[in-house]
Amino acid sequence: MNQYPMTVHGADALRDELHHLKTVKRPQIVEAIAEAREHGDLKENAEYHAAREQQGFCEGRIQDIEGKLSNAQIIDVSKLPNTGKVIFGVTVTLLNIDTDEEVKYQIVGDDESDIKNNRISINSPIARGLIGKEVDSEIEIKTPGGIVEYEIIAVEHI
């Protein structure tokens, strides 16, 4: 059985979603099905079929989250010593050598990645190029626009 790395924040977010699905969404759907049943003939009943479809999505998502959490290897990087090396969960500040622009990324699990919030998947090309490197290292990352050179200027365990 494969274990998937996940940050504490990512695991908490999944637990919150699971709790909401089980305590709020699931009862709402059950109620909607019961209400739709009262409207008579189920073959012609669009509300009933829509509620049943929603129930299928909800139950599928519950199983998906439970599976992810049971296979998660939750890593709290704030409890690990900062050696200046890039590992899963760290926040890395990079300097684009050509443009002098700084960018900051946190390396997270696949389900947690969110480029708008600068959280990149451990399996992304940038993260793969960074893992194992150290502060002050220069790295080359292949991007769709060509090779970009970065210098690692900070590694934070936050």
Score class of each variant (00 low, 15 high):
M1Q: 14
N2I: 14
Q3Y: 12
P5L: 08
P5M: 07
M6H: 01
T7C: 00
G10Y: 03
A11T: 10
H19T: 13
L21S: 01
K22S: 04
Q28P: 09
V30Y: 10
V30H: 07
E31P: 09
A32L: 13
A32K: 13
A32R: 15
I33H: 04
A34L: 15
E35I: 06
G40M: 00
L42R: 11
L42M: 14
L42Y: 07
K43C: 10
E44D: 15
E44H: 15
N45T: 12
E47A: 08
H49I: 02
A50G: 02
A51L: 01
Q54K: 10
Q55K: 07
Q55P: 02
Q55T: 04
F57A: 09
I62H: 01
D64I: 01
A72L: 03
Q73I: 03
Q73H: 13
I74C: 09
I75P: 03
S78M: 03
P81C: 07
T83P: 11
K85T: 14
K85Y: 12
T93R: 07
D98P: 07
D98I: 04
D100H: 15
E102M: 13
E102D: 07
V108W: 08
I115P: 13
K116N: 02
N118F: 10
I120R: 08
I120C: 04
S121Y: 14
I122F: 04
S124N: 12
A127Q: 00
R128K: 13
R128C: 09
G129E: 03
L130I: 00
I131Y: 01
K133Q: 07
E134D: 10
V135T: 14
E138P: 00
E140Y: 05
I141Q: 11
I141E: 05
K142G: 07
T143C: 12
T143S: 03
I147A: 08
I147N: 03
I147G: 12
I152Y: 04
A154D: 13
E156P: 05
